[in-house]
Design a protein around this nucleic acid. Structure first.
Lengths: 354, 354
DNA sequence: ATGAAAGCGCTAACAA
DNA sequence: TTGTTAGCGCTTTCAT
C-alpha cells in the first residue's frame, strides 16, 4: 500500500495531485491470496469460501480499501451510470423529478450523475454531453434543458439513449412527461364547468415550444367543445417562459385589452404573478377572475387565496424516465417514444363557481 | 473499430449491455501512426507536427471518437472531479450555490458530479459518499446534507477534502457560508433601528444546529446591545426546520403567548408562513408586526407585502467552495477551515418604521 | 516528431 | 475454491 502524494504535469491551467491508494493487490498480499480471489469476494461473484471471504473483507476494511471505478469499469465493460442534465431554476419542480430519478435508480441498481447546464446554451450543453459520453453513461436525461439537433445526433451516434423528462420540447427526442394537450383541456374545462366563459391563456408561447403548443391546443379544444369562440386577445404570452413576470404583466394587459373573467396560467409562478398583479392593481385580492394553473407545486398552497391547479406527478415522471432508460439498455427503441404520465385536478380557492 | 453490442452477466438484478466503441487504436491504425502519438495529439501534450495533428483530429471526428475516461483516468492518475452531495428541497437556494459551483468549476477546469441524498439519512449519504470515493473525486461538498462523524472520518481517511457549503452544521467539517452570527445580529438590529422592541425569533432551533445557534446568539447580542431584555416566550422553534409551516404556526403561538411587535424569521419560507398566518387570522395583512427574514430568495419579492431580508450571496458561496476545494488539492488543510462569505441587507416592505 | 513498451487497477476466462 | 493469464483503453517514460 503506497500512500505517497505526487504531482503530475499537465499542460493546462492546473496541476493535480493524486494519492496512490490501497489496491486489491495490497489486500491479496496481506491475505496470502491472488488478486482474482479478492476481486471475486469483494464483488460477490463466482465462488469462494466464507472463511476466506470474512478474512478478506476484514482486511479491506482495515486498509480502508475502495474499488477504483475507473479500473473496474474498464476491465468489466460495465456501464451502470445514468446521466442527467439539469437546468436548476429558483422555483422549479425538477427537484421532484430528480428525487424520483434517484429513488428509482437506486432500486434499479444504476447510479446517477447529475450535471448542470443553462437551458439553451448549446456550447455548455455540448460540453456536458461530451463529458457524459466520456464517462460512458448508458442514457442521458434532459431536465428543462434543450439540446439542438446536432447534439442529439452526436449522442445517438455514441449509442446513448437520450430523453427529455418533464418537458417535451421538440425534435426527435423521446420524452416522459404529462400530456400537455390533455392538461390544457382539463384546466380549461374546469374553468368552464365553474361558469367562466372568457378565459385568458397566460405565459406559454403556442408558437415556440411543444408544451406551449399542446397546452394551447387543449385549451382551444375545450373552448370549442363548450361552444365558446376563442378570441385572440385572450392570449397573453409575455416572455413566453412560464414565468412569474408574465403573470404579473398579464394583469394590466387584460385590464386594458380583454374582458376576461378567468385565466388559465400555464405555470404556478404565472398564477402567483397574476394574483400579485391583481393585488397591486386593486389593493387586495377580490376574486375578480377565476384562476387555474398547471404544475401544482407547493406555491399553490402558499398563496392567499390558494391556487387551483392541474397537478403533475413529477416524482413519478422521474421514476418512469429511469425505467425507460433502463429498458433502452437491452432494446434501444428505434422510434421516438412518448410516455404520458398521469396528472390530476386539485381544486383550491381560485376557482369559485361563478 | 468494433461496434458489436454484447451482454455481460451480473449476479445482481440487472444485466447491462455495452457497446464497444472507437478507440485510440482505431484512429492510430487509420492514420498510420502509433497510439501514443494519437494520445499526445488529442491531449495536446508533448510534441507533434500540426500536419499529422490535423489529420488525426479529422479522423477522430469522422469516427466519432470519445476518450474513455476510465482508461484515461486510470492511466494518468488524474483526478479532476469534484463531488457534490445535495439535498434538493422545494424552496431552496442550493440551486444558486450549485450554479456558482458549476461556473467556478468550469473556470478552474474541474468537473462536477452532483449526487442526491436526504438530509439526515446516513445510510443513503454513506452510499453516495462511497460512490464518490470510488470515482476518486478530490473533494466532496455537502449542500444541506449532514453526514455523521463516521462518514466524515471515512472521507478524510480516503484522502478527500470534505466541506459543508452554505450551511455550517457541526462536527469538524470545514465550511463556506455566511456568518450566521452576524446575520442574526444584523437582522435584529435592523428591526430595533426601525423602532421595534419585542422581537420574536422563529423557525430555527438554537439547540440543534450551528446555524440556529449562531443566528440566535447574534439575535441575543443585538438585543443586549440595545438594552432590550430577552424573554423566553419570544422564541418559537416550531419544527426547527426553517420551514413555511413553522412560520404559519408562529402566528397563533404569539397571539396566545407573547406580545411581540416584530419577528425575525430565520428563513424566507418562515417569513412567508408568518405573512399567510397573519392573513389567515386577520383576513388581510395589516402590518401588525415588522418582519425580517434571512436568505433573500425571490420569495421576498413575490409576497405582498414584500419581505425585507438579510440576503446571502449563494452564488459566491458556491464559487468560493470550489476555490477552497481546488486549493485543498495542493495543500490539504490540517485544521477545520471556516470561510465567511459577505451578505447584505435588503429593506423591502415588511419593516416600516414603527 | 514518432514509436515501443510498460503499466494503471481491476475483471474474466480458463486451469488447477 | 483458488490461481494464472490476458487484457480493458489509455498515458507515459524512454528510445529513436
Amino acid at each position: 500500500m503506497k500512500l505517497l502524494r505526487m504531482r503530475l504535469r499537465e499542460d493546462s491551467t492546473l496541476r493535480r495531485t493524486i494519492t496512490m491508494r490501497v489496491t486489491i493487490e495490497d489486500i491479496a498480499k496481506k491475505a496470502g491470496l491472488s488478486a482474482a480471489s479478492v476481486s471475486r469476494i469483494l464483488n460477490n461473484t463466482g465462488r469462494f469460501s466464507e472463511a476466506t471471504a470474512k478474512k478478506v473483507r476484514a482486511i479491506a476494511d482495515e486498509l480502508g480499501y475502495y474499488k477504483n471505478r475507473s479500473a473496474s469499469d474498464l476491465a468489466s465493460h460495465t456501464q451502470t451510470t445514468l446521466g442527467v442534465i439539469n437546468y436548476p431554476a429558483e422555483t422549479d419542480s425538477n427537484f421532484h423529478v430528480i428525487r424520483g430519478i434517484t429513488e428509482q435508480a437506486r432500486q434499479s441498481d444504476v447510479d446517477v450523475l447529475i450535471m448542470i447546464a443553462e437551458r439553451d446554451d448549446q456550447t455548455a450543453i455540448r460540453k456536458v454531453v461530451e463529458d457524459l459520453i466520456e464517462r460512458r453513461v448508458f442514457s442521458i436525461l434532459f431536465l428543462s434543458v434543450h439540446p439542438d439537433q446536432a447534439i442529439i445526433d452526436l449522442i445517438k451516434r455514441a449509442g446513448i439513449y437520450p430523453q427529455e423528462v418533464a418537458s417535451a420540447y421538440a425534435l426527435d427526442l423521446s420524452y416522459v412527461s404529462s400530456n400537455d394537450y390533455q392538461m390544457g383541456q382539463l384546466a380549461t374545462r374546469t374553468l368552464i364547468d365553474k361558469g367562466y366563459s372568457r378565459i385568458g391563456f397566460v405565459g406559454a408561447d403556442p408558437e415556440k415550444d411543444i408544451v406551449g403548443t399542446q397546452r394551447f391546443a387543449g385549451y382551444q379544444a375545450a373552448l370549442k367543445a363548450a361552444g365558446i369562440t376563442y378570441r385572440p386577445e385572450w392570449l397573453f404570452v409575455g416572455d413566453g417562459k412560464y414565468s412569474y413576470q408574465s403573470g404579473l404583466d398579464a394583469v394590466p394587459y387584460y385590464t386594458d385589452n380583454a374582458d376576461v373573467d378567468s385565466v388559465f396560467a400555464t405555470s404556478d409562478d404565472g398564477a402567483l404573478g397574476i394574483i400579485n398583479g391583481l393585488i397591486d392593481r386593486d389593493g387586495a385580492f377580490t376574486h375578480q377572475w377565476g384562476i387555474i394553473s398547471t404544475d401544482g407545486s407547493q406555491i399553490c398552497e402558499q398563496t392567499r387565496p390558494k391556487i387551483s391547479s392541474v397537478t403533475q406527478d413529477f416524482n413519478l415522471i422521474g421514476r418512469m424516465a429511469v425505467d425507460e432508460a433502463v429498458r433502452a439498455i437491452t432494446d434501444l427503441p428505434k422510434e421516438k417514444r412518448q410516455i404520458d404520465v398521469p396528472f390530476r385536478l386539485e381544486l383550491r380557492e381560485t376557482t369559485p363557481a361563478k
